[in-house]
Simulated assay, not measured.
Amino acid sequence: MKTRLIIVAAPSGAGKSSFVEKISQEDPRLVDIITFTTRSMRKGESEGHPYHFISSEDFQKKIEEGFFVEWARVHTNYYGTSYDSIQTSWKHGKCAIMDIDIQGVATFKAKFPDAKTVFILPPSIDELRRRIAKRDGGMPADIEVRMANAEKELREASKFDYQIVNDVFEHSYAQFKKIVEELLA
């Protein structure tokens, strides 16, 4: 397998989780790496889908134990990716794919220089705000923090191997799938 690790990043609400979840279900060569988080479950979520939900105390303990490849505080919660989950996918001859916050991408690239990166852009900041409100069942209290973070994150897009604007999901996903298939060929 040419590529062992594909990292998908985007501002919150741009669609990175939807892309990774869909392609992981369609392509058996991929393993979606499940991130750990201290945030609360949203409606429709469960343990392991889309995250491993743990307490702040457990998260801090795992940091001290060196459990995470990378971890970051995003908005008001912690997120981290375990070494074990990535290495397990490789042991099974699979390519690890994950969606992570932009903060974590540099850490991953430093530890896994052969990783390929894809940045998902929203069509506009206004559309991103609308999507977050729709997804979260109303405007979240930290919306202005998220929008300020999104504007900073969008300036990082050019550092990625690939960029896709997620305007019409089916069209954008087709572009994404083509990139992933080329990376796995």
Rank of each mutant, 00 (worst) to 15 (best):
E170I: 01
G13H: 01
V165F: 01
A72P: 01
D142K: 15
D136I: 08
P140T: 09
I179R: 00
R131F: 02
D161V: 04
R4K: 13
E182H: 02
S56N: 08
A133I: 12
R155C: 12
S55Y: 08
T38W: 09
M139C: 13
L184S: 09
V180Q: 03
I54Q: 02
R73T: 15
E57L: 12
P140M: 13
M147G: 09
E57T: 07
D142H: 10
G66Q: 14
I179Q: 03
A9N: 02
V118M: 07
P123R: 15
S40Q: 13
I54W: 05
I102H: 09
Y79K: 00
K22L: 15
E57Y: 08
K61S: 08
R130N: 14
R155I: 06
L183W: 02
A157C: 07
N166S: 01
Y173D: 05
F119G: 03
I54R: 03
D58I: 03
F67E: 13
S82H: 10
F68C: 11
T117D: 06
F36Y: 15
A150I: 04
E26W: 02
S46C: 08
F19P: 00
A115M: 09
L154D: 06
S82I: 07
Y51A: 12
I125F: 07
Y51L: 06
S46I: 07
D126S: 15
K22M: 10
E64H: 05
M139A: 11
K134V: 14
D27F: 01
Y162K: 14
A9L: 07
G15E: 00
E45Q: 15
K61D: 05
A14G: 12
Y79I: 14
A141Q: 13
S158N: 10
I86E: 06
H92Q: 13
Q163Y: 00
D114G: 13
M98C: 08
T88V: 13
G104M: 09
R29Q: 12
T37N: 04
G80I: 06
G138L: 07
K177Y: 00
K109D: 04
I179A: 06
L5K: 02
A14K: 02
V105N: 04
P11C: 14
G15S: 06
S85A: 14
I7G: 00
S24L: 00
T76Q: 14
V180F: 03
V8P: 01
T88I: 10
T35P: 00
K2A: 04
D167A: 12
I33W: 05
D84L: 13
L184V: 04
E70P: 04
V118I: 15
I33V: 15
I132R: 13
V8H: 00
Q175R: 12
S18R: 09
I54N: 09
D161A: 09
